[in-house]
Amino acid sequence: MSLDLAQPLPDLLQAIVDVESVSGNEALLADLVQEALATCPHLDVERLGNNVVARTRLGRSQRVVVAGHLDTVPVAGNLPSTREDVDGVDAIIGRGTCDMKGGVAVALQLAAELATPRHDVTWVFYENEEVTADLNGLGIITAQRPELLAGDFAILMEPTSALIEGGCQGTMRFWITTTGTAAHSARGWLGHNAIHDVREVLDRLAGFEQREVTVDGLTYREGLNAVQIRGGVAGNVIPDECSVHINYRFAPDKTAEQAEAMMRELFDGFDLEIVDLSPSARPGLDLPAAKDFVAAVGGVPGPKYGWTDVARFSALGVPAVNFGPANPNKAHTDDEFCPVQDLYTCADALRRWLGATEREEA
């Protein structure tokens, strides 16, 4: 089995999608990616775990990083892929077509095709983006070989409907737990109901002002929501514990530390058990490299709602944007798909930016 990187983009996408690569099971796809890129004489290819990094060494004055993750969320009866009409749109349907093997297909084909781009390029294909941050492939590369991710600008090929989305929101998830005293519900006065005490937490959530924040010309919408609640053991027992799981999505006008301080102030009097805290990333669209890319792509950049690995690049001092095929609203859905035209739109934009001519559709 091998990947033909010169085949038409829709066929390449289907070939990649049909290699199941749910998080933790990326080895076979990483093997195929490594083997295909290793045949390109203009690329130096390295492998760290199930992360493949391919670089040009042309001595250009600038280096850009183009990255995409190989893993997907679990399959839901949506493999193998199919090519069908979706409401009048020619599309590839199947797990990972949207998030984000469409972007991977574009990056792989261009990595093989663009032997002499006007910038040196680092192409990164990495594992475990869809699971906990400690397993993320970019984090592994950063810890072991940070120089592999060095660059003047980065593009993360997350689905954006082939439009630039700048920066990303930060995310914070935490539990608040109330405690009481268990008792028989027929003699409730002998106990203390922990579920009732959660009312104060929910009142503070309901009273929180959901802000709209403009950063570098892009407007982000913040959100603070209870996403899970658990408590109680039986229908005749006063519960002695109740926990609320809360998710705060914050705009890139604040650091992760500022977001945490804000939440601790809002829920003063309660203990917060933080389970995840990932920083936001400013758009950086005022930087020269970003302006150059925006001019090549065209259109009006928008904000990224949600967290992506552009934040990791931002932390490394590399300004980054999201740009890839498919509508992000279809990510993780059972009927996710990638419009064929989005593949060509993204590929042609990257060719223009990197100084090559557009390629005809196949």
Rank of each mutant, 00 (worst) to 15 (best):
G299P: 04
A320L: 06
D292S: 14
I274E: 07
D292Y: 02
T308N: 13
G302A: 12
A290K: 08
G284V: 04
P301S: 05
P283C: 11
P325W: 00
D309M: 14
D276A: 07
D271R: 15
G269Y: 01
V294T: 06
P319G: 04
F313H: 01
R282C: 03
G306Q: 15
V321D: 02
K304N: 08
D276H: 11
G269V: 03
G317F: 14
P301I: 01
V275M: 15
A315T: 09
D276N: 12
P325D: 03
F323R: 14
D286H: 15
A296S: 13
D309H: 09
P288E: 06
G306T: 11
G317Y: 07
Y305I: 06
K291N: 10
V294N: 03
V300C: 08
A290I: 04
V294M: 06
R312G: 00
L285C: 05
L316E: 13
V275E: 15
S278W: 05
G306W: 01
G269E: 04
W307N: 11
R312S: 14
S278G: 06
V300A: 12
V297S: 03
A296T: 00
P283Y: 00
L287H: 14
F313S: 03
L316Q: 09
A281S: 09
F270D: 15
V318D: 02
V310M: 11
A315Q: 07
A289E: 04
A320R: 03
T308I: 09
R312K: 09
